[in-house]
């Protein structure tokens, strides 16, 4: 499907534009195009995320939401045949796709929480320490301090403190997802990306994750992909609407859900199209 030019992009990528809500840009996605095996998946996407805010990426399935998220910490290239063909992402002013940028260091600083939580084949405590043991970002803290503080932040400490050496696979899905977030936090990330983190969870666990996102927001910028519009409204400050690999509109969540400028966005939000 080809979208007429005048319908694409709402948000001016260049610097002369004064950012809303006066925060500095953490992520600045500029004219990003991605192909899978030659097939175009993202076409000239522009987006930005602000510090201490939650950016929600919404849009119909197949619009490239997850792909965009995966380009933001360079996990896209784990998929065979996926290629960034043009554009770049600036993270705090540094180019993520610049020459000589080590993808592993990008991933260390920008962590991803996936749709389906998976336990690594080790104990709960070791799961938390997975990244720390590699990156050695102990910063003077002991093992136990890191485990405790990370599990505390995701509200899992009281539930698992007596069985830290149990295999992590024994946790429930909701607990496991929080463990995955703790695992990411242990890396001391500077931003967190979440790919439909609640779609495998029941309503109670979903509520806990949402609380957690709001609690983390003061320290970290968060980008979340969701197909749940109500969730986007509840937790995000900014919303980006993707359609068929193009960024149709980005604005504060408030404005996008009440006064969308783009016709397709309006149709999607009012439920005319699924």
């Amino acid at each position: 499907m080809i979208v007429p030019m005048e319908m694409t992009c709402s948000y001016a990528p260049e610097g002369d534009h004064e950012d809303p809500a006066d925060g500095p840009r953490i992520f600045d996605v500029r004219d990003l195009s991605v192909t899978f095996n030659g097939r175009s998946v993202l076409r000239g996407v522009n987006a930005m995320a602000l510090d201490r805010q939650v950016l929600a990426i919404v849009g119909p399935s197949g619009s490239g939401k997850s792909t965009l998220l995966r380009t933001m910490n360079r996990t896209l290239e784990l998929t065979l045949d996926a290629r960034v063909t043009s554009g770049d992402i600036h993270f705090k002013g540094e180019r993520l796709y610049g020459n000589g940028t080590d993808p592993r260091l990008v991933r260390k600083r920008i962590c991803m929480v996936h749709q389906k939580p998976v336990a690594f084949p080790m104990s709960i405590g070791e799961n938390v320490l997975f990244g720390v043991r590699f990156h050695k970002n102990w910063n003077g803290r002991t093992k136990d301090e890191i485990i405790r503080s990370c599990l505390d932040r995701v509200g899992l400490w009281n539930e698992v403190k007596d069985r830290l050496s149990d295999p992590a696979s024994r946790l429930s899905v909701g607990q496991l997802q929080r463990l995955c977030i703790a695992r990411a936090l242990a890396n001391d990330p500077e931003a967190i990306l979440m790919d439909e983190p609640c779609s495998a969870l029941d309503p109670v666990s979903t509520a806990r994750i949402e609380e957690l996102i709001l609690a983390m927001k003061p320290q970290l910028p968060i980008v979340i992909v969701t197909h749940n519009l109500a969730q986007a409204r509840r937790i995000s400050d900014q919303s980006l609407f993707l359609y068929d690999g193009q960024s149709l509109e980005q604005d504060t969540t408030e404005r996008i859900f009440t006064h969308p400028k783009n016709g397709r966005v309006r149709d999607f939000i009012t439920g005319k199209v699924g």
């Binding site: 910490n73 592993r104 998976v118 080790m122 990244g131 695992r183």
Partner: peptide
């Protein structure tokens, strides 16, 4: 599972580390 690999690599570690800590087990 591919999920497991993606998650492990997503934390910014090297291939050797993933093989040692996750794949082998």
């Amino acid at each position: 599972a591919q999920d497991l690999r993606e998650m492990a690599y997503g934390l910014g570690v090297t291939q050797l580390y993933v093989m040692r800590r996750v794949l082998f087990r």
